[in-house]
Design a protein around this nucleic acid. Structure first.
Lengths: 204, 204
DNA sequence: GTTCATTTGAACGCACCCGTTCACTAACGC
DNA sequence: GCGTTAGTGAACGGGTGCGTTCAAATGAAC
């Protein structure tokens, strides 16, 4: 459908501005309360331009969600890194994971998307694939390797990954999602504590 | 402000019908998209009646949230019970906790409320107090007692509660919140596994 | 400079819905 | 049965916002 002889290219800067403005609007007030006219105004773009590129509100929302998923994929793929000391590695991972999960960007995304999945279940799947499932797979692989190397006892690596994830996260998630405050500050010792308990539970 | 000489009592059945219909509407489509007129219709009540009892949409939503919080308080308060075998007790608790957290009622409440806390932070606090904080306090007390009795090693009981909660929950939460499916069925063996790991981590 | 897709501004039709008013009816206490 | 209060139905004003139309302007490519 792309016209062959484009005598005037699409203004990509405007496209990005639209997506940015849409993201802000959607995550600020939620899908239902979001206004395309406000988005157009914030992006300094005519409303018609938006309708020319995205057929309507739902499409625009989809585009925003996909963009955020892409960012999440990128962020998750570079989470588990160094490998000198196993314990230190786990602590570093836990630290960066908690930092990621408690970031305002992720929290807003999470909160707003959760409210829409009853209407658009496929977006839930999209989100799961882009974030949690990727992280899950990475952790599972790391656990399998750790068992291979004798760092921890042999067991179902998926279950071990689930335990590690859970013990590090603990109570924090609910607090972050529903508390506007940061009374649950990122405590480094807390992570080390959880990792040590995990290592004891999985001692070879 | 209750008028002294009430010559006609309030129809309590209608009040309940209003709250029920409002809960359905709010949790179905979210606060912004909810329509008072639809609620009135579903409750088989005049719109004016709703405005006579609740000053407006926000007030009605508050009432619904408080009602749900009340139900949560009741449900949480009777979660941790028997005390014969410590391990069995933990497993039973984990089982009922996961069942509770994965119930459709709690999931809808959770998803919808999360989207509104940026607008009404005090509702987040209300929710936290009614549910998570209560459960947290109960678990912490239980851990302290278990340490006293020598069931587990001495440590910060709050941290231990967090670890127990987290290790039992593991990956399930994200799946339940964003996956429309029940591919994460309530596996009894899963809970026992987590409890055993916890007990090993906290072996005296 | 011509060409043609992109972008714009403004207006329109339509629908939804909040919150209010008002005249009216229904039900209970006395 | 009288007085008072609770509830009804219908209509209204005001606002918001989606999605569309159209004539006009813009700007890169040729």
């Amino acid at each position: 459908m792309q016209s062959k002889k484009a005598h005037r290219p699409v203004d990509l800067a405007k496209q990005q501005a639209i997506l940015d403005a849409a993201r802000e609007e959607f995550f600020d007030v939620g899908y239902a309360a979001a206004s395309i006219e406000r988005i157009a105004q914030a992006a300094d773009v005519s409303k018609v331009t938006i309708y020319n590129h995205y057929q309507g509100k739902e499409n625009l929302f989809s585009a925003v969600v996909e963009g955020q998923c892409e960012r999440m994929r990128f962020a998750v793929d570079r989470a588990l890194g160094g490998s000198e000391d196993f314990r230190a590695e786990l602590i570093a991972f836990g630290q960066s994971m908690l930092g990621f999960l408690s970031s305002e960007e992720i929290l807003r995304f999470d909160r707003r998307l959760a409210g829409e999945i009853e209407r658009y279940p496929e977006m839930g799947e999209l989100f799961l694939e882009a974030g949690p499932h990727r992280l899950r797979a990475m952790l599972t692989a790391a656990m399998a390797e750790a068992m291979e190397r004798g760092h921890i006892a042999r067991a179902d690596p998926y279950v071990a990954a689930s335990h590690l994830f859970g013990i590090i996260r603990g109570f924090t998630e609910v607090e972050w999602r529903f508390g506007n405050l940061e009374n649950t500050r990122l405590d480094e010792a807390r992570v080390a504590d959880a990792v040590d308990r995990f290592l004891r539970a999985y001692a070879p």
